[in-house]
């Protein structure tokens, strides 16, 4: 039981603190590595919490004996001698109910959010296909849908196949280089399946809004996929072209209205682009993803062990 509680507490602590830490890193770390960090942190918290619930269901003392003996003999003695049969029974039932509720919420949220989104995308795409002119993409690349509108817009819709949508207004306002950078940015979203990543974050947040890590994920993930797509586009078309496009599209020429929405993300992107020297090497990227992933994966377990150790010390002092 001690271990079960420590595992759950460890998961809860990491779920509360990790979003704050990961947010701090956004400005300094390769966005791909950070996306991996978020995913692994979510997974590690889920696995730790699941292990905690599983430990609760293990009958009686079996779960506690080896590790507790290792961690602290005195606490174990207290646990072993107490008349706790009823408590263990309740914990067993509690763990099963919580686990079943969590799975049910996840499935419900995936169906509700995921299916609704897929339907909406299909509806919008059907309309836009009738209105726009399709420009076929290169081999293995998605087509671009050109709309006749003066609004300078570019966006991508996920799905298979997804589509890049852009307007004549955008083409009129940007230089060919900047336009190429914008389209490269949108194609990077589709190639990287960013819509899917965002949808997963949304589903998790809708299922467990009371978990800080999951509540913070959609916003952070949206920001990170923009940075990832920026890095791709800057590699293809050069950072200057992309900066010019960002400044132009966000209406830097109209300062009174430009303070509206999404400015912080755009400012962050501009700053990252300004700092960028050369595209990250594959080896460097893999090693960064690996190290950050390892840290994220091990943190809940490390916190759990720390809690157990502290508990045994406290028990030692009291006993």
């Amino acid at each position: 039981m001690t271990i079960a509680v420590a595992l759950l507490l460890g998961a809860a602590l990491v779920a509360a603190v990790a979003p704050w830490l990961l947010r701090r890193l956004t400005r300094f770390v390769d966005p791909v590595a950070l996306l991996v960090g978020w995913a692994v942190a979510v997974l590690a918290v889920a696995v730790t919490a699941g292990a905690g619930l599983a430990a609760m269901t293990v009958p009686l003392y079996a779960a506690d004996s080896p590790l507790s003996r290792f961690v602290g003999g005195r606490l174990w003695a207290a646990v072993a001698t107490a008349p706790q049969y009823l408590l263990y029974q309740l914990a067993d039932t509690f763990a099963l109910v919580v686990a079943a509720a969590a799975v049910a919420r996840l499935v419900w949220s995936a169906l509700r959010v995921g299916l609704a989104r897929r339907r909406r995308v299909a509806e919008h795409l059907a309309v836009l296909r009738v209105l726009g002119d399709v420009e076929p993409g290169g081999p293995g690349e998605p087509p671009t849908l050109w709309l006749r509108s003066a609004r300078p817009l570019a966006f991508s819709l996920g799905g298979r196949p997804g589509a890049v949508v852009a307007t004549d207004g955008l083409r009129a306002q940007l230089t060919p280089d900047a336009l190429a950078a914008v389209l490269a940015h949108e194609r990077a979203h589709l190639r990287g399946r960013h819509h899917m990543v965002v949808a997963c974050a949304d589903v998790l947040a809708a299922a467990f809004p009371f978990v800080p890590l999951l509540r913070a994920a959609p916003g952070a993930v949206r920001e990170l996929v923009e940075l990832v797509a920026d890095a791709d586009a800057a590699g293809a078309s050069g950072p200057d072209a992309l900066r010019a496009a960002l400044l132009r599209v966000t209406g830097a020429g109209a300062p009174d209205v430009a303070l509206a929405i999404g400015r912080t993300a755009v400012e962050l992107r501009l700053r990252v682009l300004a700092r960028r020297r050369r595209p990250p090497s594959l080896a460097g990227r893999i090693s960064r993803c690996g190290s950050l992933g390892m840290v994220a994966a091990c943190t809940p377990l490390a916190v759990t062990v720390g809690l157990l150790w502290t508990a045994s010390r406290v028990a030692g002092v009291l006993g």
């Binding site: 989104r117 919008h124 209105l131 726009g132 509108s149 817009l153 966006f155 960013h194 965002v198």
Partner: peptide
Amino acid sequence: REEATARALRDLLDASGDAEAVLLHFARSV
């Protein structure tokens, strides 16, 4: 075609929370 496009873009981008949910913008202009 221009009117219909303007209306479709309004439906997609300005009305409801659809844009946030279904698409990734290059940059949100106002």
